[in-house]
Design a protein around this nucleic acid. Structure first.
Length: 421
RNA sequence: GGAGGGGUGGCCGAGUGGUUGAAGGCGGCGGUCUUGAAAACCGCUGCGGGGUCCCCCCCGCCGUGGGUUCGAAUCCCACCCCCUCCGCCA
């Protein structure tokens, strides 16, 4: 969420930013609501000051043995007016809050301006897509021939957009998770956490999935305000919700493996074949809490950490900067890392690394105390996939495929595929 | 699920109706002392909001939301969370 004061002081900038995103935001209503709000505050606080003053006087009168009944009556009336005004004020502030929660972040000036992903800017490309001297298969065929992917039985057990990994497939998924966690903890200095896979409504408000994107989530029935995690970003970022961190501890870096659950509402017909778009997939996430001054550097580092996983797996990829129209709700800037998929002859998203500035921190109330003392400030939060495990497995099958429809295991993963018993 | 205990400032911890935004301690910041550091001593040290706002004034905040009262951290109700014991259970 953006700072109300800042919005009001920079109305034109905010208007321009929303236009770049293609977002409809009623800023005029916000301005009107704020005026009403301040007017009501002035009124009710004047009455409260009067009540406090009179109550003090009543106390003194009673102590002095005087009759305070008339004054008491008057203060009682003031109290009733205060109650009414307070209620009105709560209503106005609620409306303002609801509105603020639906305003997306302001894109950073370095984001290319455009309506959709066609305006995304390619920053760099790594690796040379392999040339095949046979007809390439997609991961669905390779998975079937190798006997490690079973979409039919997954459909029987659950439904469409699920997969069963079996034998070496399950082991490869596990190896990838282990490899990525090892890489980020041992080499990149992240702290590993294993968070709950169910979160409450407040956490989803904190990171920005709610209130606008409820239809993307799976809600857990009995409690009503519990949801399956759509990404580890939610539980891990909210780890420090409401806290005041110490500046000395920043940047705080966490990595977490979780499955991710997405309803994929509105994506009917897209990527229906295979495991590109599933209701459940594994992901290793990177989350960083940073000082405001360092967050742009941290975004570069974090993106580099995700890239390192692909380099070690020797999978060709490119990094693109999302255009203003393609940017997620909470992000100020996002790099997507896209891996090469031979079957599609194109690069597909395998990681998304974003700087949210203080947008999430303000929603989730995550602050830090400056080292020299002073007022708490909002931290900057960042996160990125390091990487989406299912898509990585898929990319391995395709890029490491053999002519007979089987595949090779990347060298870096072989130790993880071997028995240690 | 049952019984009991508890949620107060960065942290610990007093406080059961009237200058208590809150004793005391720890931590932090500044100072005295010291060649330097430590110790000791002194001072300062919550968050948010409003006001013609860099001085100052005012309002709110003691888990959350209601209620009682002229006045609530203190009394009442509901809810949330934590702890202990019992039951159940992977």
């Amino acid at each position: 969420m953006l700072d109300l004061k800042w919005i009001l002081a920079n109305l034109d900038d905010v208007r321009a930013a929303m236009a770049k995103r293609g977002a409809e935001v009623d800023l005029d209503r916000l301005v009107a609501l704020d005026e009403r709000r301040r007017k009501t505050i002035a009124e009710v606080e004047k009455l409260k000051a009067e009540r406090n003053e009179s109550s003090r006087k009543i106390g003194q009168m009673i102590k002095a043995g005087e009759d305070a009944t008339p004054l008491r009556e008057r203060v009682r009336e003031i109290g009733e007016r205060i109650k009414a005004l307070d209620e009105e004020l709560r209503g106005i502030e609620g409306e303002i809050r609801d509105l603020l929660l639906t305003i997306p972040n302001v894109p950073h000036e370095s984001c290319p301006v455009g309506e959709d992903d066609s305006a995304n800017r390619v920053e760099r490309t790594w690796g040379e897509p392999r040339t095949f001297d046979f007809e390439v298969r997609d991961h669905v065929d390779i998975g079937e021939i190798s006997g490690i992917l079973d979409f039919e039985r997954a459909a029987r057990v659950t439904g469409a957009r699920f997969v069963v990994l079996t034998g070496q497939g399950a082991r490869l998924e596990r190896a990838l998770i282990q490899f990525m966690l090892d890489l980020h903890t041992e080499l990149h200095g992240y702290r590993e956490v294993l968070p709950p896979f169910i979160v409450n409504r407040k956490s989803l408000l904190g990171t920005g999935q709610l209130p606008k994107f409820e239809e993307d989530l799976f809600r857990v029935d009995p409690p009503g305000d519990w949801y399956l995690v759509p990404t580890a970003e939610v539980p891990v970022t909210n780890l420090h919700a409401g806290e005041i961190l110490r500046e000395e501890d920043l940047p705080l870096r966490y990595t977490a493996y979780t499955p991710c659950f997405r309803s994929e509402a509105g994506s009917y017909g897209k990527d229906v074949r295979g495991m590109i778009r599933q209701h459940q997939f594994d992901k290793v996430e990177l989350v960083t809490f940073a000082r405001p001054e360092e967050s742009w550097d941290v975004l570069e580092q974090l993106t580099g950490h995700a890239e390192e996983a692909l380099r070690r797996l020797e999978l060709p990829y490119r990094v693109v900067t999302l255009s203003t129209g393609d940017l997620g709700f909470s992000a100020a800037k996002t790099y997507d890392i896209e891996v090469w998929l031979p079957s599609q002859g194109t690069y597909r998203e395998i990681s998304s690394c974003s700087n949210f500035l203080d947008f999430q921190a303000r929603r989730a109330n995550i602050r830090y105390r400056p080292a020299g003392g002073g007022k708490p400030r909002f931290v900057h939060t960042l996160n990125g996939s390091g990487l989406a495990v299912g898509r990585t497995l898929l990319a391995i099958l395709e890029n490491y495929q053999r002519e007979d429809g089987t595949f090779e295991v990347p060298a870096v993963l072989r130790p993880y595929m071997e028995s240690r018993l």
